[in-house]
Design a protein around this nucleic acid. Structure first.
Lengths: 191, 191, 191, 191
DNA sequence: CATGAATGAGTTTTCATTCAT
DNA sequence: AATGAATGAAAACTCATTCAT
């Protein structure tokens, strides 16, 4: 109902469908079912939408990840669940990820992006710290830095599947298995 | 001399400098030193340049990587050199990577992108096969799939530095070290 | 006030003055006193104006014809008045007729053209029916079909004068007389 | 083989298919299988083609008419044959007729057009003169003027069919019959 | 004569932004 | 706050014409 929200989700839809470049403000307002002028009551430009969109995306990502990864499970299981979760998010939102990426890149909103993604990195980082403390992974792991590596690895692996591959279901399963193994070795998980 | 080439490299230059969105065809032709109409003899639109640019970019990447990675060195050294090379490419061309990414994403040229990246994947894949044969890495590694994981991991790690970080030099050094270690474990390198 | 109307009548004016080919959208909008972009709010292209112009033209034709042909006069007089009326319209709008013709021909709007001309055909057809009933013309006349023949004949006769002839005034008078006589015989008018 | 001829017939084809306005010189040369520059060796512009095209058209028309109308038959039969012939020409070349019409209208080649059509008018005119002399038609007929009326009438009748009607075959037969009768009365033919 | 890539002036077309309602 | 028609500056695109080969 809220106009601002309507604009943001309309933008997510049309950006995903036709790319940022090709999307006109008029496409967004048409989808949102509001008047052309109303857009400018909430956002000064097309690109100024990106932080708002990014926020929504990270929110959704965190929701899915936190729902999928069980707090009480042992770390190796949690890691597998994380991979599954990120693949799931990628499947649903892979276009958006590229969009946010390039959308933010072409603005000066990069700082914001880091901020927006921060809770996700934080959450992984804490898991890694705990795992080091519990001696389930090698103690040479730098939690903060590795959190980003893990997310980068898994996201790029997922994108490779959902952007390019034809037989996505099967491919995704194999790719997930490979990533999980890769990670297990990378972190030196001792079961 | 060749007009098409002139257009593509002019486009790489101006896209890097001002982003896709802000770049006008007239900027590209001015830089290329050709007439406006000539552009349309070779490309129907700004976005249709992206596959050609991607091709050039991958070419340059491969060149740098192959120059940096010594054929005769032992695998662990080669892996470190690969990381260094990809970080170097990212440093120089990180804007372009985001651009290609979003440029391709907003067109229907994704299929082409895979093709274009293929020689790079191939090259890494062969290195991994050799390493398995030489028993320097675990034999459970799937060469083709892992090649993509490795590239994805290193590229995303590099981007994290060059897109967002302020103190790039220092950060890059630390990040590289971290990635190298991560990879060494992930592939179970036996020195 | 209505912008669409302003565009159509401006187009009729400038098309008449300089031909379709030589007319730029900018000429039309200048004449209409509106902004360039406004044109595209109503028509996607120059040629897409043609059906709208045709409609206006037929309207004007009908107006002139109905003003010139007295309802109460005997049929032979009405026929002569019709000839005069069509010659008058041709004199004023002969460029437009060729333009509409070729303008419609070069689009896919031919179907529309028939629809647009329909009220004119109808009107003549009814007159002929009445004349048959009143036994002032031969009863072998097929009203609908003959309506079109009559209009076709008179229009082509008028065009011959106004398109090609130098001494139009005199020529028109002679040509009109000839057409009237031709028609009187063709319809077997019994005075 | 002759390049000039190749250009003219290619132009007839593409003009018919897409209209004069939408046709580019490049379309014509492509169809003609010659180089872009070669066009300018023969014609200075697109519209300067029109007289050459008109000439070809009238040539073809006269050929068909003279083949169809038997020299020795009585006048009423010859008149019927003329109607058939013009309908036949219209069926095959109706697009061209509109094109020549508007194409010449938009140039200063109108004088030429008259000249080009002259032999056709002449031919009909002579037939009418003979018919008057033979007392098969009313002697109030002005041969030259009526020749044009007859052609105008029959051509417009034919166009109505071939431009607009769906069921062309049947419609054409009825229309022809109507025109023949119309003409017979108009000229007061005494069998 | 013939070619066809290159040209760039001339047009069309777009679309973010405004503003009277 | 909301609207959406109108704007016009800016950009894309076209295509007749040229000219070196």
């Amino acid at each position: 109902m809220d106009k601002r929200e309507r604009i943001v989700s309309a933008a997510i839809e049309v950006f995903s469908e036709q790319g940022i470049e090709k999307t006109k403000i008029s496409d967004i307002v048409k989808r949102a079912g509001i008047a052309q002028g109303t857009f400018y009551l909430y956002f000064p430009s097309k690109l100024s939408l990106m932080p708002a969109i990014a926020e929504v995306m990270v929110e959704k990502t965190l929701e899915i990840v936190q729902a999928k990864v069980s707090k009480s499970a042992p770390f190796p299981v949690r890691l597998d669940q994380l991979v599954d979760a990120i693949f799931e998010v990628s499947e649903e939102y892979h276009e958006m990820q590229a969009l946010i990426y390039s959308g933010l890149a072409s603005t000066e909103h990069l700082k914001k992006w880091e901020t927006v993604y921060a809770p996700f990195y934080e959450w992984i980082s804490e898991s890694l710290e705990q795992a080091i403390e519990d001696e389930v992974i090698r103690d040479s792991v730098d939690p903060a830095r590795t959190a980003k590596l893990v997310i980068g690895l898994v996201e790029s692996a997922a994108e490779q599947i959902y952007l390019y591959d034809a037989n996505k279901e099967d491919e995704a399963a194999v790719q997930k298995r490979e990533v999980k193994q890769f990670l297990r070795f990378a972190l030196s998980i001792h079961d």
